[in-house]
Design a protein around this nucleic acid. Sequence first.
RNA 1: ACCGAUGUGGCGGAAUUGGUAGACGCGCUGGAUUCAAAAUCCAGUUUCUUCGGAAGUGGGGGUUCGAUUCCCCCCAUCGGUACCA
Length: 951
Amino acid sequence: MDFNHKEVEKRCKAFWADNETYKVSIDPSKPKFYVLDMFPYPSGAGLHVGHPLGYIASDIYARYKRQTGFNVLHPMGYDAFGLPAEQYAIQTGVHPADSTDKNIKMYRAQLDNIGFNYDWDRQVKTCDPSYYKWTQWIFIKLFEHYYDTGEKKAKPISELIKLFGEGGSASVKASHANETDFSAEEWSQMTAKAKDEILMNYRLAFRKVAYVNWCEALGTVLANDEVKDGLSERGGHPVEKRPMMQWALRITAYAERLLEGLNKLDWSESMKTMQRNWIGKSTGAQVFFQLADSDDKIEVFTTRPDTIFGVSFMVLAPEHDLVASICTDEQKSAIAAYVTEAGKKSEIERMAEGKTVSGCFTGAYALHPFTQKKIPIYISDYVLKDYGTGAIMAVPADDARDRKFAEKFDLEIVEIVDKSGYPDAGIGDKVGVMINSDFLNGLKVKDAIKESAKQLYDHGIGKRYTNYRLRDANFSRQRYWGEPFPIKIKDGVSVAESFDNLPVELPSLDDFKPTAEGKSPLAKVTDWVNTPDGTRETDTMPGYAGSSWYFFRYMDALNNQSFASQKALDYWQDVDLYIGGTEHAVGHLMYSRFWTKFLFDIGEVRVEEPFKKLINQGMIQGVIEYIYLAKEKTNGRSKFVCSKIAQQQGVDNFSKLPIHVDFVEDYGSHNSYINRAGIEAFIQWRPEYKDAIYECGLGTYDMGSFKSKSDATDSMLYTESEVGKMSKRYFNVVNPDTIVERYGADCFRMYEMFLGPIEQSKPWDTQGIEGVAKFIKRLWSLYYTDGEWRVTNDSPNKVELKALHAAIKKIRKDLEAFSFNTCISQFMMLVNELKKQNTSSEVILKDLVRLIAPFAPFLAEELWSKLGHEHSVHHSEYPEFQESYLVEDTITYPICVNGKKRSLLKVANGLAKEEIEKMAKELPDLDRWLDGKQVVKIIVVPNKMVNFVVK
RNA sequence: ACCGAUGUGGCGGAAUUGGUAGACGCGCUGGAUUCAAAAUCCAGUUUCUUCGGAAGUGGGGGUUCGAUUCCCCCCAUCGGUACCA
């Protein structure tokens, strides 16, 4: 009997379903282990072979952990709200719920095909009201809490109100925006609306003005990646920044804890560094600059208060609140023009244009806090509104960007640091001695930073301050397909829905276009918006709302009394292993950590960090094949040429057209080409090019016939190969279903792992799978030969035992290190050795089945049952290795001369260093390397090598 | 521009603490088997070579008896940059 993967897969799937093999429940008798995959968004394109890479790795690990005695939670679900479904709805009228459901069904079928061990009873969907009920519930909790900076935790707003009533704003230490001081009495006399506005500055979920990408022509707000060079990607219409009142989450309150929490996590250092840099803690000083002709002050944050005497101008972000009011009449039109231009640029563009400086003078002046000198105030897009205070004191002498700006606008540059003692130091380096700086003169930079901060405080000009780059999270989207906010606005006051009224369900809709004013389509559902106790918020929550806490829901996914029971939270605690891509480095992973800390503060979860260990899987890329199309037509006809011809004639004269990889011979290689059949397939696919000319070195294909230049019979039109994204737009998508159909799920799984380290990106090559397919056949042939079961109860020999136990040792070790590719190599070596030994011993073959079960679950299950077992192999024990089988009798040392291998020496294991040295000296093949040389030293590294150092 | 990662044969990759560079595969070449093909099996496969060797892990420099591994500089590619998910 040959291995028939289709039959075996069918049989195993039924067996697993009947026996609920992967169902998991709380079991205090076993240690828990929670393996989580990143939440997939079910896109209409379905899965390609790159998506399951991380899922296969986590599946293997989860199975391995189960076999080593853990109670393993391994769930899956869908991050089902999102822009693509809404965009599709606008285009086609298909309700996002319907298209999402359809996509989920397709995903599920594809996932099932690969044989994952998910407990599907725990599936969650973020767009399901029974799920988003709890997303809304958490939002209300955020809304009803503030962050106490004294106790360093979230506390109920009711306590804040009490404190305000007793001692006014001064009695409160809390994260907040907009400093407003008031007494207890003033508080008691405020209107409800005024109180609400004050409280908004403290709530962890709050409303504030934020900027959106507004596209007038499309009448809609655009996502950042829908905007290219200040124009909409669709249609190329102008886009501008527009202020809008929106919800935000005060993640900045947690900045310090998010930073500290990283130290305890088993994440890669690079991932932690990215999060640290994103949080961007810097210590320095807050300084106030009085305006020359007004009572207003400009607040700046600087890490270099020591350079205060070098300040010769100030720069505000174009969006800064003061720009409009301070700007003089003469400058109004210039400023307005500059603000408009800056509004068209994205932050990346602003920063990427580091080399070209732009800006505009406001006409206003500030007073230097120490010298009272008038200093001009500019605006420039290199200052960002949301970073720091949106304003800087410019020190052209010791800041590269400020210097460029000063040079361009011919502003004064006051040298304030003498770096002559540090010839290697550049601009901005914190070394040197202060000059031209009044009371700081003669101090070293480090001391000057301290002294200046002290003086600023003593003079009431500023104070020590810690700034974070992290910004509060914008939590509003002007979209339909997202969680509705459980908020009503009555008389200008935001009121949370009572918990009994949750979920606030999305009303049905059939026109998904936004309103003319840029509001969410929900604004059109007037009978939903207008209620007796206020108007509903019509924005919806962003994609990351549902994904910021889903890992807790899996612990008790069907609970309708709470988001998860106390019992489940006590038992499962947190995620032990999370596998996902680095693209989530600072988004999802930061928000999830923030929500978890908040839920911890209010006593809802047991842990402060959600993900103990994190592994980042790389991407599987595709091969993109291009053909060259001449930009100029030949006699009115399109002309394609061979890549070699294009290079000769200059590639600028051609445009590159991605072509379906199936048409290309030897695709992915330097010599990929399309032959006549390929050209004809291409024409069938793109009929608009049926009249085109296809020229290559061998001849020309023209209107159905090939005119050869020599005696060639077929066209060989070279294409250009590139490694890149696997995507519909490049016509290079490989569907896992196709591979599973042909080779089987076990083969597909093992090949994905065999491709390379899980953390690295690598290109997909379908051809390479043959090696794994052969391996599986060879493995199967150890159990069946010509349809005959050949496992016997013969005793294994020494070589077999050594091969097996070496493999067990290596595979266990590599699994713990998430080095799946080397596990597969080890399996291959083991099977090669067992084939050579013609092994039939059950002792060996039984362990091999259990060893490979996590990798090839179908094949293993089948063989396990054939070996006479009733219960699933996936609940069997993982094999242990015995060191005694692995002891080597002899060791072969490489003998090197000056680090180059010149000979080999086989000696008994455990031989003393001196003996090895002595034997090495006597090796005849070393003579030619040692003759006439002086041996300076002989280095013997036990079990490794011997090196002769000669002169 | 900034932050992070990666770079080793024709290709994917291996080398656990600084110790035999190229394990395990793909592909290719030759052979066996076959009417033939597929499949299978065996052998070879970094490059150059005067066949003695020499060079070689993106490029340049350094530390070391010894560097893919550690340090400095540079280049290229990929991910992220706050409304794609």
